[in-house]
Computed example of a mutant assay.
Amino acid sequence: MFRQGLRTLLEAAQHIEILGEASDGQESLKGIEKYQPDIAILDIAMPGLSGIEVAKRLPKIAPGTKTMILTMHGDTFFAVEALRANVQGFMLKEESIDHLVQGIRKVAAGEVVVSPSLEKAVFKELQNNQNKKTGAAASSILTPRETEILQLVAEGMTNQEIADLLFISPATVDTHRKNLMTKLDIHSVAGLVKHAIRHKIVTL
């Protein structure tokens, strides 16, 4: 029933086309391989294969398909595991349809999206894991543009200099910097520089 209602709501949104739907993990894999969608929306709990297991298999059968988990399971653990499995979006079913559509559009644009109620805890957990292990996890949730901004900030460039180099506005640069700080739970430029050096985004 939820799936049918979701389909109806998404079909009403502009520029979103539903190619198919599935009732379990195996059926999801077959449909994704057949239709090669831009985005596959999966649940954590699906018969046969979980959404995370499906996501892990997509690079081989649908390398161009991005993945979003839409679930009632609001545990940080599941969100972290999903992002580790290269899932680009993790949203809760309690989100409004407007927030969900916005999240879908962001994932389609290459961003990583997590429900606001989980975002800070998830990115903090990724950073903790990063510090304990190799440091790759938290940086992996940055978009290519955010990584580029982080590198330039760490190199000492101002917002205006970065804007001129990348042909974007200083306000857009500032937004990226704020997103970096939120995702990495870092609250100063000096902290961003240390993070970039520690994880070899820039070198001394």
Rank of each mutant, 00 (worst) to 15 (best):
residue 78 F to N: 03
residue 80 V to R: 02
residue 82 A to W: 02
residue 83 L to T: 02
residue 84 R to G: 09
residue 85 A to M: 12
residue 87 V to P: 01
residue 92 L to Y: 07
residue 92 L to M: 09
residue 94 E to K: 09
residue 95 E to D: 11
residue 95 E to C: 07
residue 96 S to P: 05
residue 97 I to T: 09
residue 99 H to Y: 08
residue 99 H to R: 06
residue 102 Q to P: 04
residue 103 G to N: 04
residue 105 R to F: 04
residue 105 R to T: 06
residue 108 A to N: 15
residue 110 G to V: 11
residue 110 G to C: 10
residue 111 E to Y: 06
residue 113 V to G: 00
residue 114 V to M: 01
residue 114 V to N: 00
residue 115 S to R: 02
residue 116 P to A: 11
residue 117 S to T: 11
residue 118 L to T: 05
residue 122 V to D: 01
residue 123 F to G: 02
residue 124 K to P: 04
residue 127 Q to D: 07
residue 128 N to W: 06
residue 129 N to Y: 11
residue 130 Q to M: 13
residue 133 K to F: 15
residue 133 K to W: 15
residue 134 T to G: 15
residue 135 G to N: 05
residue 137 A to D: 14
residue 137 A to H: 13
residue 140 S to Y: 15
residue 142 L to M: 15
residue 142 L to H: 04
residue 142 L to F: 12
residue 142 L to N: 05
residue 143 T to P: 03
residue 143 T to K: 07
residue 144 P to E: 02
residue 145 R to G: 03
residue 146 E to R: 11
residue 146 E to Y: 04
residue 148 E to I: 10
residue 149 I to G: 01
residue 150 L to M: 10
residue 150 L to A: 01
residue 153 V to Q: 03
residue 153 V to N: 03
residue 154 A to Y: 10
residue 156 G to N: 09
residue 156 G to M: 05
residue 156 G to E: 05
residue 157 M to R: 13
residue 159 N to L: 02
residue 160 Q to R: 13
residue 160 Q to D: 11
residue 161 E to H: 11
residue 161 E to N: 10
residue 162 I to W: 05
residue 162 I to Y: 02
residue 162 I to E: 00
residue 163 A to Q: 09
residue 163 A to G: 09
residue 164 D to P: 03
residue 165 L to I: 08
residue 166 L to H: 07
residue 168 I to R: 12
residue 170 P to E: 07
residue 170 P to G: 09
residue 172 T to V: 08
residue 173 V to Q: 03
residue 175 T to N: 14
residue 176 H to A: 03
residue 176 H to R: 12
residue 178 K to S: 13
residue 178 K to M: 09
residue 180 L to V: 06
residue 181 M to G: 12
residue 181 M to E: 11
residue 183 K to S: 04
residue 184 L to I: 11
residue 184 L to Y: 08
residue 185 D to I: 05
residue 188 S to D: 11
residue 189 V to F: 13
residue 190 A to F: 08
residue 191 G to L: 08
residue 193 V to S: 07
